[in-house]
Design a binder for these strands. Structure first.
Lengths: 339, 339
DNA sequence: TTTTAGCACTCTTTTTAATTGACTGCTAAT
DNA sequence: ATTAGCAGTCAATTAAAAAGAGTGCTAAAA
């Protein structure tokens, strides 16, 4: 494929991303390649169509990129520096926000990306159950109520309120705290399970209900933690592809049964951007969308994975530029700043 | 206004709520009043229009209810028992869910209402800043990190993580705990303010930064608590009125600048249902919608306010029935069950 | 050999006109 | 007081015509 055809393909994708309308040979000449004639463009377009990079919607329409076309565009034709000074400033402001919790940073990052790219953005925090426990604290909030606080080795804090049907004493709480820490320090969160319940019960012979409740509530909290965080849900509704009821419905469905998105996000590879275009998504309902995921981190602390979902003609250049830039910022800040 | 006219008006509103189409005299005869002729209905409709309860969309169209018509319908023509056995069952199931936090109960109630009525539902918890403090606990999570836990007199628990730029000792934390409790027990949450900061500083002469940070973070948490909780945002999009771009846009806007909804919810009167039909809403953007709010409670514990927003032709009967029923359930449960 | 002007052809979109259908309001009869 | 029946109105639907935006191909020019 010669250089001119590549330029034309890029022009077609760029134009289609901008307008969502099939691109005609004339448009290419006027906006991208003023030195060749539309007939020449037409010849090249015929060839590009033959080898499968572009398609027609009907006999006499302009061309739209095919899945293969988008793929080539993303892999070879794209420069990732599509970010303005204003945007850099804005990102800087947002990332300055002081957060007390790693999760909050992920949320801020998520909403920043959504605001700049205008696409729906989802995220999950770092996988809770694999994190190692540094310390567990139990704080009595009443004779039948406890708060469990777990500090992990990477510094995240998880807490939950636990209520009992019977009284518990400070002394019991102290013993429980000692025993939990003794057994769990340095171990991953998913060590809090049924066998642990039996172990603790055998050691203490306290009311099995209290021990059971504690373990169950902590498990519930860990599971709750893996919830999808979602920002900019309705941003997409302005897009022309959402005039199709089918497309809109699929979109809403995919976000609702959030297992789908969770699966995709969990597939992320550390510090690597993954791009799934249309059919490349495993889920049938995503066939009209592209998903870009990025598992971000500070140093080697996993920060969870962010995913952007938009139409196949999403602005790949902008999205990927912003992701790369934010990732860089997070790591730079870490180098200069706080511990 | 005679009995027959009232029946016809009710029929028109009911029919319009169901179909969203102007109601013709023939429809009334066929579905509601088989023993009178359509000409008679037409005569009555002309009169109902003259006195302002119904309107035409054009010369030869059927009638739709006017704001005044809805008002009469809601005030006088409606029975509030529009709830099926399945729905009662479903509500029962949902309300059985064990919760550790009052806020979670509000969330469950909110989502239940949204699921049954198919309308977008919003809620706020009980006004935090007026709640009285029962106890404050500070738990050290590291030499520069603290968790503040506040238990209020009505039993809600609020907690936040606080990070410092300098070290703090367990002894300092103990003193702070004593001082905070001494000063604040029995006082409302909004007593945690600038004057308190000065008082504590004068007593202790600890690093002003630490004291300042603690107070600010707690204030931030309290403020955060007043966030709108929103369920079923896109339920409305299937309704025919949302085909109008203007209506859809207004709806999205109102929910986004959530101050509007917060204001409305805060206007609630304990255990009373408020209904705002179309123009009765203060906010211009709500002119095509109706909002129904209900400030619910268990015994005399305020549980916050729930609001339902839907088209003017919303199913008032169902919405209000469900609200009343849930309110009853909550209070009955409380009588029989747990403390 | 590559590029281009030009024209016929195709398909969609827009515009216009004609028809149908759902109502009401009124009049005259019951 | 009610109702049958019919003329009149407007919106919605259907049909037909015109306009417009493209392409592909051919033959000439570079």
């Amino acid at each position: 494929m010669d250089e001119r055809k590549k330029k034309i393909l890029r022009a077609i994708v760029d134009e289609y991303i901008e307008t969502a309308e099939p691109v005609s040979s004339n448009t290419i000449v006027q906006k991208y390649e003023p030195n060749i004639s539309s007939a020449t463009v037409r010849n090249d377009m015929a060839e590009l169509e033959r080898i499968g990079f572009i398609e027609k919607t009907h006999t006499s329409s302009g061309r739209v990129p095919s899945a293969k076309g988008y793929r080539l565009y993303v892999d070879e034709l794209l420069k990732y520096d599509d970010i303005s000074v204003e945007e850099i400033k804005y990102i800087g402001e947002k990332l300055k926000t002081k957060v007390n919790q790693l999760e909050d940073l992920t949320k801020i990052t998520t909403s920043t990306i959504s605001e700049i790219t205008h696409y729906t953005t989802v995220s999950v925090g770092p996988e809770s159950s694999k994190q190692n426990i540094e310390e567990i604290k139990f704080v009595m909030l009443g004779s039948r109520m406890l708060m469990a606080i777990i500090v992990t080795e990477i510094g995240t804090i998880k807490e939950t309120i636990i209520k009992f049907d019977e009284d518990i004493t400070q002394e019991q709480v102290n013993t429980l705290t000692y025993l939990f820490n003794n057994k769990l320090r340095g171990k991953p969160l998913d060590m809090i399970d049924k066998p642990l319940e039996e172990y603790i019960f055998n050691e203490l012979h306290y009311s099995i209900n209290i021990i059971k409740t504690i373990i169950e509530e902590i498990q519930k909290m860990i599971k709750n933690d893996e919830k999808l965080y979602l920002e900019g849900r309705n941003k997409n509704f302005d897009l022309p592809e959402f005039k199709s009821l089918d497309v809109a419905r699929n979109f809403v469905n995919v976000l609702d049964e959030n297992d789908t998105m969770l699966d995709i996000l969990k597939n992320g590879v550390a510090n690597d951007i993954q791009i799934y275009i249309g059919d490349e998504n495993k889920n049938e309902e995503l066939k009209d969308f592209s998903v870009i995921t990025f598992k971000h981190s500070i140093g080697n602390k996993d920060l969870g994975t962010i995913g952007i979902i938009g139409p196949k003609r999403m602005n790949y250049s902008k999205v990927i530029s912003v992701m790369k830039y934010i990732s860089k910022m997070l790591n730079d800040d870490n180098m200069n700043g706080k511990e």
